[in-house]
């Protein structure tokens, strides 16, 4: 990943800007049941296969800023929410990833219990967290 950043640096103008949109390093998708104005958290998903890739990407960004190839302009952490109609939709959503996240122990059971008690009009809400990092060519 450092190599990728270096190759990009080589095709940028001096003082050019590189912006990276990344999954948040630690906040994996948060699942909740939304019923009217009520929101009941279910679980934060886990991604054992994906996490090393995120960590490696963040490490590469630190390397190229620490060694002075890029200057850090700023980092922002953001969220967006997706509402899904039912557990089947959630399953489909989770499998959009090449390395799908999964529920932690007990998470799926809690989802099913809260979903059953959610009543008509309940939705499954997924909160996704991401990070936007701005770098300038040094």
């Amino acid at each position: 990943m450092v190599h990728a950043l270096e190759r990009v640096r080589q095709v940028l103008l001096p003082n050019a800007v590189l912006v990276l949109v990344q999954p948040h390093q630690t906040k994996r998708p948060l699942i909740a049941i939304r019923s009217g104005r009520e929101r009941q958290p279910v679980a934060r998903l886990v991604s054992p296969e994906f996490q090393p890739l995120i960590d490696a990407a963040m490490s590469a960004i630190r390397t190229v800023t620490d060694d002075g190839r890029f200057l850090r302009l700023g980092t922002g952490h953001h969220q967006f929410r997706v509402q899904l109609a039912n557990p089947a939709e959630l399953k489909r959503y989770m499998h959009l990833e090449q390395r799908p996240p999964r529920f932690p122990a007990g998470g799926k059971k809690r989802l099913n219990e809260l979903w059953r008690s959610g009543g008509e009009g309940a939705r499954i809400e997924v909160t996704e967290s991401f990070t936007v990092i701005g770098l300038r060519v040094a």
């Binding site: 990943m1 990728a4 950043l5 990009v8 095709v11 940028l12 103008l13 050019a16 800007v17 590189l18 912006v19 990276l20 949109v21 990344q22 999954p23 990407a57 590469a60 960004i61 991401f130």
Partner: peptide, 13 residues
């Protein structure tokens, strides 16, 4: 080639 002003990685590093 002609160098770029801006580079974007969107969910791809």
């Amino acid at each position: 080639g002609e160098p770029f002003d801006v580079a974007l990685f969107s969910w791809s590093l």
